[in-house]
Simulated scan of single mutants.
Amino acid sequence: MILVTGGAGYIGSHICVELLEEGHEVIVIDNFSNSRSVSLRRVEEITGKSLEYFDVDLLDRKEMESIFERFDIEAVIHLAGLKAVGESVEVPLKYYHNNITGSIILLETMKKFNVKKMIFSSSATVYGTPKTNPITEDFELQATNPYGNSKLMIEDILRDLYVSDHEWSISILRYFNPIGAHPSGRIGESPSGIPNNLMPYITQVAVGKLPQLNVFGDDYPTKDGTGVRDYIHVVDLAKGHLSALHKSMEGPGIGEFNLGTGQGYSVLELVEAFEKASGKEVPYEIKNRRPGDIAVCYADPAKARDELGWTADKGVKDMCEDSWRWIKHNPEGYFTV
């Protein structure tokens, strides 16, 4: 049985689909602070299989231990955590307490029940402002905000844990920019309030919920002046977790892996691709750069290919078509259910 923390969220729900379709038994714990249980019901609908889920917070040690007592858990995919960069700057203690303390309680519980296989959801934010691109896993780590720092600190904790006990099998997955949705159109990204990320903002403009897209900066040293990022389809990202899970079953060890496509797209290139995929115009206005934003960031995913046997298969056309299908059928996300 595989435990997925934060499994009702955008990425977690897609991972649950892939796990169930591969024949795994799945248990989800989520405190539903930024997700809704309807996503898990739709996972069951897509796969025709059932999973167990519990409204549990990682900070609740007693509840965590009761889950491990009740179920024969073989490995943990750990996604639960607060994730808004801007909010983390405003309330850093909340982010450090939730993300780091929650992870420590999870790891202590795993150790108590002798569960030593962990796939950790990290982020490309741990690279801070990279000096060059593409980014490889051996780049200097230098997060620039409390959210990124919390991910980097958990990475350090996992590395120290492995040094102390070589029985652990740990994969640290550094995500680049997940977008898209399941091709069924039944699960996707459902932010509450104004979206923080580019694609949900684009889709909400296209569906008429927001009047225009704000593009922050057109004077970067890029082909059209707008920021360039490595966008990866969320289904490819989910499959990366299964590849890491397979590796963890082979034996102990620890490794860090970039999950990206290795190709960068500018903001305006993504807008153009979405307009082509959806047939909808996305009006935009250029605004001043946001502090902390960088010009270019994209992955070298060769290590994940060589060591996990994983590559991203879906292109930007798939990402845009699937994002449009999701928002067209779910203009309010999960919040109308």
Rank of each mutant, 00 (worst) to 15 (best):
W310N: 00
L79D: 10
L237A: 15
G260C: 04
L93R: 05
G180S: 12
L158T: 06
Y95M: 10
L173C: 06
V26Q: 06
A143D: 12
T132G: 03
S103K: 00
G102A: 00
H97A: 01
Y265S: 13
R305Y: 07
P195T: 12
I73Q: 13
I202N: 05
G128L: 09
A206V: 03
E21R: 11
E90C: 08
I327Y: 15
Y10G: 02
T109M: 00
T261H: 09
H166S: 06
Y231D: 08
S123V: 02
A80K: 04
S190P: 02
A80F: 14
G180N: 12
T336A: 14
K111N: 01
T132A: 12
N98S: 08
K317C: 03
H182M: 14
R42H: 14
S192A: 13
T129M: 08
G208N: 07
I202F: 07
E25D: 13
S164G: 04
E307I: 00
E256R: 06
P211V: 03
Y53F: 15
L107C: 00
G12H: 12
E44N: 06
V296D: 03
S164T: 04
T129V: 14
M153K: 02
T144Q: 09
L308S: 05
F54Y: 15
P92F: 06
T136N: 05
L173Q: 06
E52A: 04
G262D: 01
E272F: 00
S323M: 14
T222I: 08
D60G: 08
Y10S: 10
E137C: 02
G148K: 01
R42I: 10
V267A: 09
A75L: 14
T261I: 10
F113M: 03
T203V: 05
I327F: 15
P134R: 01
L59E: 13
V43D: 13
G9C: 11
I29K: 03
N197T: 03
N196R: 00
E140S: 10
L79W: 12
E189A: 03
S35A: 15
E74A: 06
K83M: 14
G208K: 04
R70I: 13
N177I: 09
L158C: 01
P130I: 03
L245Q: 09
I2T: 05
Y95P: 08
L59P: 05
V38S: 13
L245C: 11
Y147F: 13
L161S: 01
E69I: 09
V282D: 13
G227I: 07
G81H: 12
K209E: 10
D318R: 11
L93K: 07
V38G: 04
K116F: 08
V115Q: 02
Y231M: 11
R290E: 14
H233T: 11
I194G: 03
S171Y: 04
N114I: 02
D236W: 09
G279A: 02
S121T: 15
I11N: 09
P291Q: 08
K247Q: 11
P195Q: 11
E137H: 09
T144P: 00
E307M: 01
E21P: 01
N149E: 15
S278E: 08
K151P: 04
E155G: 05
C320F: 15
I157R: 02
P283Q: 06
